[in-house]
């Protein structure tokens, strides 16, 4: 069984092996080809949709002393996904071209998500027009947040870090820490469920879907089009690999962040 990938470099959107009958007839996941996408340009969104999602993403992860979703290129990340480009190639160079049953299943999911986004952008614009008489793109940040609050049907998330500080759980330097304490009631917020098993995104309503995709676009490997220049990773202090290829070649290590000099039982207590 061959694992060679047929690379199609002739056009911006070219099919890999097995798509047009010119390559291998295998539909095995092991034989999926690779397509290379243009660095610029839109694949699914029109220019207006692109603008609305880019503006909304910037309110979901706003720029402050660190870059935000716009600087990270989150809208491109979402646009590529909605155009059906689901998996980066293992080395990060291009996207896999699915074939067979998997391609059909993803086409179904992609269509669901496309419809959700199209309607979602339309809803954002309707609310903006009703409240402010103009497009979401032209609103100021507070107005944009107010629209997102209405779309989400919930208040804007409050300042969690400040709350912990107010409760004395986080200190300024030199202060005494109070007891940690446990809040026994299940928390309402939190995005993804408290589990190692994320929900399928195509089952989400528009707003939670947008939140999830913006987060993904800010923190996913730059091979997907977001997290440009690792701005997402630098914001939170994740050193990350220089490329997926670096991890594929076994050249990425987190050893500098471990404590190899310590031996069991690892404690002086």
């Amino acid at each position: 069984m061959s694992t060679d990938r047929t690379e199609a470099r002739s056009g911006p959107i070219a099919d890999g092996a097995g798509q047009d009958g010119s390559g291998s007839s295998s539909t095995s996941q092991a034989d999926w080809g690779v397509v290379h996408l243009p660095e610029e340009g839109r694949l699914f969104f029109d220019a207006h949709q692109w603008g609305v999602i880019e503006a909304a993403a910037e309110r979901i992860i706003p720029a402050d002393h660190d870059p935000g979703a716009k600087d990270a290129g989150v809208v491109r990340f979402i646009d590529r996904y909605l155009a059906g480009h689901v998996y980066a190639a293992a080395d990060g160079n291009g996207f896999l071209v699915q074939t067979g049953k998997a391609a059909a299943a993803w086409a179904q999911r992609t269509q669901t998500m496309q419809e959700r986004y199209t309607q979602g952008v339309s809803d954002i614009e309707d609310i903006s027009d009703r409240r402010y008489g103009t497009s979401y793109i032209d609103l100021d940040p507070e107005q944009q947040d107010a629209v997102l609050v209405e779309v989400s049907g919930r208040p804007k998330p409050s300042d969690f870090v400040a709350r912990l500080r107010a409760e004395g759980k986080l200190t300024a330097q030199g202060e005494q820490r109070s007891a940690s304490g446990v809040d026994p009631s299940p928390a309402e917020e939190g995005g993804a469920p408290p589990s190692n098993q994320p929900v399928p995104d195509d089952a989400l309503d528009f707003f939670p879907m947008l939140l999830l995709h913006v987060r993904q676009g800010f923190y996913a490997d730059p091979a997907y089009g977001g997290n440009r220049d690792h701005v997402g990773w630098r914001t939170i202090g994740f050193p990350g690999p220089t490329s997926l290829g670096q991890t594929q070649r076994g050249e990425f290590s987190t050893n500098d962040y471990l404590l190899p000099e310590l031996e069991w039982p690892y404690t002086d207590q």
């Binding site: 660190d66 998330p157 939190g190």
Partner: peptide, 11 residues
């Protein structure tokens, strides 16, 4: 659970 999901609070 309890992580703010968007806005400055989330970041």
């Amino acid at each position: 659970p309890g992580r703010p999901t968007w806005g400055q609070a989330a970041k």
